[in-house]
Design a protein around this nucleic acid. Structure first.
Lengths: 244, 244
DNA sequence: CAGTGGTCTAGACCACTTT
DNA sequence: AAGTGGTCTAGACCACTGA
């Protein structure tokens, strides 16, 4: 790059980052693929290796790529372990991570509620898939979950109904079956009393205190792709947060 | 650095980061101070400017320094705005940040409970300061808080009892009066029923669902310096979390 | 205008992995 | 041995700030 003037406001390394991210979003590079080595990317894009390196570091922080010394740079392939580590915040009372056993109770078509439409950027009453799940922690059903997905993003959603264990985390399924990579989520937490239905699922009395977590999840292109409401019995578990 | 061998396992930039962090922890450089410019640090430490730059970037991410183009690099001076932005997670129902009005109800000496001693790395029954506070959000008392501080770290703790507003956030006070910079905290969240005392403070009935947040805060040297239990009425507010 | 951090370049060498 | 990312160096130039 020998031009003296750069009319673009954004720094070069951010432009390079956007270009590489777009290739992943457009599935020109797919999860698991080996991408070209740094010097080749640099000459192809007409920038220095240091600039490519800075862009790749940002994509690695966003969990979109994995770099392995001696092997190369790969588009990140989500695994259940990775997805749980990134998005599942429940711990036992000693602070140890727990692995949930998840059962899909039902998958049904529905119409977006006003809250869902606003959160997901959909038209009112737009078609959604509704998934209900329950999750066992350390042997007890502690979590009841209601997930809403825009039908347009998840055509032919096929989740095996399972009474006990789902073999892969649902975000891994989104990626494999629908090409949607969840990279970020926002959650809003509150304490409230359990409804009768929740109390039945969790083995509580109606009105017992439960933790309600409302999540909005975003994919690599910044699109809201999932809204879920999770209700948790925190008798023997805690929702862990790191502030820094 | 012309040596061919480097016996140290850690990369140079991490060693430089540790050296500079230690200068802040040891108060050789104090909050607000202007620190030497990059090239000077590089020659003083015998490394290249790029290595210093990488160390400074890490310290900036940790909120220990602030870099301002054209002005220089300063040791971070906590402000109430900064401390609230970093450590106060409550939002209104629209997701907007709220600013709490804090009242200090009491400051008393006490002895560490077993949980506190374990969390803070103290001997059983070690002396602690106990601070009780309440916080108003949007005009209502929604938060009741109990803070425990190791007496050894906070000699002569002097918090003005205030019925309404505390002029600075308490972490700003820790820094100014005791030289303790809180950089990180871990929180564990649960839903439970309010005790009678909590219900009285929050204007609820005993047993009403409240959000309990147990926080352990760490300073720049990695030492646990504060344990607090916060009880929140989430009738009109949410605890916000970003997952990425 | 001088001085600072921010960006960008162009390499050399090391550590690790695989063939 | 060959090829990759990780570290480290040594600059040039730009953008911003304040005297």
């Amino acid at each position: 790059m020998t031009e003296t003037r750069r009319p673009d406001a954004r720094p070069l390394y951010q432009q390079v980052e956007a270009i590489l991210r777009d290739r992943i979003v457009a599935r020109a590079w797919r999860p698991g693929d080996l991408i070209p080595r740094e010097p080749d990317l640099a000459t192809d894009l007409g920038v220095s290796p240091g600039t490519v390196r800075r862009a790749l570091a940002a994509l690695e922080r966003a969990h979109l790529i994995e770099r392995r010394q001696g092997r190369g740079t790969f588009v990140a392939q989500q695994t259940s372990e990775q997805a749980l580590g990134q998005f599942f915040r429940l711990r036992d009372l000693a602070g140890r991570p727990v692995t949930p056993l998840t059962a899909v109770l039902s998958v049904e078509p529905g119409a977006a509620t006003p809250e869902e439409a606003a959160a997901l950027g959909l038209a009112p009453d737009a078609p959604v898939h509704r998934v209900r799940r329950s999750r066992r922690l350390d042997g007890w059903t502690r979590v009841s979950e209601a997930i809403a997905l825009p039908a347009a993003l998840f055509p032919g959603l096929d989740l095996p109904l399972a009474p006990a264990r789902l073999e892969v985390e649902i975000y891994v399924h989104y990626q494999r079956a629908h090409g949607i990579i969840v990279v970020r989520a926002e959650e809003a937490l509150a304490a409230r009393g359990a409804t009768e239905e929740e109390a039945r699922i969790l083995g509580l009395e109606a009105g017992a205190p439960v933790l309600e977590v409302t999540r909005l999840a975003y994919d690599a292109s910044g699109r809201a792709v999932e809204r879920r409401v999770t209700v948790i019995d925190t008798a023997a578990h805690r929702y862990a947060v790191e502030l820094e």
